[in-house]
Design a protein around this nucleic acid. Sequence first.
DNA 1: GCGCTGCCCGCTCAAATGAGCACATAGAGA
DNA 2: TCTCTATGTGCTCATTTGAGCGGGCAGCGC
Lengths: 314, 314
Amino acid sequence: MPKRPTEIVLTASVARQYYVEDRSKSEIADDLGISRFRVARLLDVARRTGMVEIRIHSPDTIDTELSERLQRAYGLAHAVVLDVPDDDVQSLRRYLGETAIEVLKDLVTADDVLGIAWARSLVGVTHGITKFAAAPIVQLTGALTSPDGSDVLEAVRAFARAGGGTPYVFYAPFIASDATTARTLSRQSDVARAMALIPTVTVAAVGIGAWRPGLSSIYDNLEDVARDKATRAGVKAEVSGVFVDAAGHAVSTPLAKRIIGPSSEQLAAIKSVVAVAYGDEKAQAIRSVMLGGWITGLVTHTSLARTLLADSAR
Amino acid sequence: MPKRPTEIVLTASVARQYYVEDRSKSEIADDLGISRFRVARLLDVARRTGMVEIRIHSPDTIDTELSERLQRAYGLAHAVVLDVPDDDVQSLRRYLGETAIEVLKDLVTADDVLGIAWARSLVGVTHGITKFAAAPIVQLTGALTSPDGSDVLEAVRAFARAGGGTPYVFYAPFIASDATTARTLSRQSDVARAMALIPTVTVAAVGIGAWRPGLSSIYDNLEDVARDKATRAGVKAEVSGVFVDAAGHAVSTPLAKRIIGPSSEQLAAIKSVVAVAYGDEKAQAIRSVMLGGWITGLVTHTSLARTLLADSAR
DNA sequence: GCGCTGCCCGCTCAAATGAGCACATAGAGA
DNA sequence: TCTCTATGTGCTCATTTGAGCGGGCAGCGC
């Protein structure tokens, strides 16, 4: 910081005029009878010495800095990190879901086709949607019974209702008992119609599961044999029914044939895939999914974001 | 502030890159794949909504904002307002004096001629001066006995010693007993030599007195008769022996002829006149002096500055 | 005294930026 | 359904700004 009093006053004055009053350097220079170069240099000094302090504030709920870092670290197109209490899973899920809906609102136009996969935090809050683009809404995966009774079909319909687009739902489970059953189910007209639309989907909302008990709806709804087989095949995570290993590569397992949902190729072809994820225990799984490039956007909370960033630094 | 989460993140990201990382708008735009216009607009939004907070800090001792306002309000070339405790007059005087010296250091080059008038806060601290321009130093006014023994001559010599310039001092009182004595004194060679140099003085350091007991060395050193006469003539303040009324106009009073110091014309001709002033009771006097344009710079403290600004708003 | 060094200043030229305009799009209301 | 309005976007052109350069000057060592 300058030592001479008159220069301190001058520097502060210039900084105030430039930064607070938004005057141009030339204008300030003319005003003070000094050259614009001098003004620029005074401003440099002011910044370097800390006379000018600039802070970026975020609205309470969003941690923009973490969001940005996460976005950069994993090459995401969108990342939203919510700074909300994460001890109450119920309300956390609500927050994340509502935010995800906002993100989708932002992303989806009438020219898009929105795909909705089973994701607990999303499907629970869809009833409150207002104003949505008139895009077709396609159910991406089969349904799973949820403790609170909300399901994918409801979510698809809610989006369609809010925007006036056509909902494409179907009645089939997420996981069929075997590959043959899955094929049979897929031939049902409603399932076939939705599946046929998957290649046209431009924006998808998905959930991410970790291949461990309690961290993936698929894992929890599977028999031991199939589960262990997948585990041995290297499955570490799952995105809307697509199985991936630690590095994020798709794992081909017989299990995949039992899933009613997008194939890995289909998922990869979707332009924007927004995932909602919470729970620090899922960090590794989410990381794998992001490394594999399966998703383009993530809505999550601070502690998980921090874990993900710490991991990416390794 | 934007409502959509992705836009909040984007806006904050842009603001951070622009303000904190000092990247250019075009660069940020290319990076994010958006137009530079959009970046500019996002930044506008960020500023308008308070996402970007810019604060100008001053070093502890100087209140740059008050300084600037004072400077503008009274059209001063320099104003330095010190934010120091003003309950201890001793230390206040020290601070002001030292700061005034810094200001003078800044203002005076080898091509200048510095004039020093009697000013208690200045003369007390001159012994510590180091590094000064090699300018001639001229004693502007006669001397007054000071309680702490410091005097103008000492100050003049200290400046000269620090800079290597020639000191022009003389032995004569500030106030002669009558006009005739004053004339006689002025014919002394040392006085005459200094007085002859006054028209060459380019920078002067002066004190300001209020025409009330205890607020002006001249007032306090005068007999009742002369004092009252001056009061009746409208004298409200005094700058290095020049008497002015409330509006700042020079008051012609017989008293002026008894003063060994610059005439009002001579004072007015000096390019830079820096005054040191403290004590809220002097506010009106200082205001008058500034209104009259007698000084171009002021070194003072916060409470007095605030009073002066409140007065100027009237 | 004399050159040397580092610093501050203002210049030129090219790049960055702002103001105003035209266009597209989405939502509101007839 | 159609028009109107508000909003967001990118364009052009004039202005503002930054990078790098050379000159002048004070401070310093010989």
